[in-house]
Simulated scan of single mutants.
Amino acid sequence: MKNSVRERRDDAGLSQADLAAAVGVTRQTINAIERDRYDPSIELAFKLARHFDCRIEDLFDPDFDVEDA
């Protein structure tokens, strides 16, 4: 799943560790999300969206056609 977590984190001037602490996960989890190696739980997706004051859809793109769903 494509995401804009890294761009938003960079824009906010946060390190991966800072963001991880803010949403209650490890730095490694943030790294894996940013590298598209891990899809966050819905709970974590909501926490990230809340932290960046945006919608989940603004952070994550499932990268599939509606017809495929």
Rank of each mutant, 00 (worst) to 15 (best):
2 K>E: 13
10 D>C: 08
17 A>S: 10
1 M>Y: 06
4 S>V: 14
58 D>A: 11
12 A>R: 15
36 D>P: 04
1 M>G: 14
43 E>T: 09
17 A>M: 09
13 G>T: 13
26 T>W: 00
35 R>A: 14
40 P>Y: 01
42 I>N: 09
56 I>Y: 02
20 A>W: 00
1 M>V: 11
32 A>M: 08
59 L>K: 00
15 S>N: 09
8 R>H: 06
45 A>I: 00
35 R>S: 15
13 G>V: 12
39 D>W: 07
65 D>G: 10
51 H>N: 01
15 S>W: 08
7 E>W: 09
41 S>A: 11
6 R>V: 11
29 T>R: 10
48 L>G: 03
38 Y>W: 07
45 A>S: 12
68 D>L: 08
27 R>C: 02
33 I>S: 04
23 V>C: 04
57 E>Y: 05
16 Q>Y: 02
48 L>M: 14
51 H>C: 00
63 D>V: 11
47 K>V: 05
54 C>S: 15
63 D>A: 12
55 R>H: 14
18 D>N: 15
39 D>A: 13
37 R>M: 10
30 I>A: 00
1 M>L: 09
45 A>V: 02
1 M>E: 10
14 L>E: 06
33 I>H: 07
10 D>G: 10
29 T>C: 14
23 V>D: 01
60 F>L: 12
15 S>V: 07
9 R>P: 10
47 K>I: 03
42 I>R: 09
51 H>K: 06
43 E>K: 08
12 A>Q: 10
41 S>E: 07
58 D>N: 04
67 E>L: 09
57 E>M: 06
44 L>I: 05
42 I>L: 11
57 E>R: 13
60 F>D: 13
24 G>I: 12
3 N>A: 08
8 R>Q: 12
19 L>K: 01
10 D>W: 06
45 A>Y: 02
45 A>P: 03
30 I>V: 14
45 A>T: 01
5 V>A: 03
37 R>P: 04
32 A>I: 00
67 E>W: 14
65 D>H: 11
44 L>V: 04
6 R>A: 09
42 I>T: 13
5 V>S: 03
16 Q>I: 00
61 D>F: 12
27 R>I: 01
18 D>S: 05
22 A>K: 14
5 V>Q: 02
68 D>R: 07
41 S>Q: 10
63 D>W: 06
2 K>S: 14
2 K>G: 06
14 L>D: 04
29 T>P: 04
47 K>G: 03
65 D>W: 06
2 K>M: 13
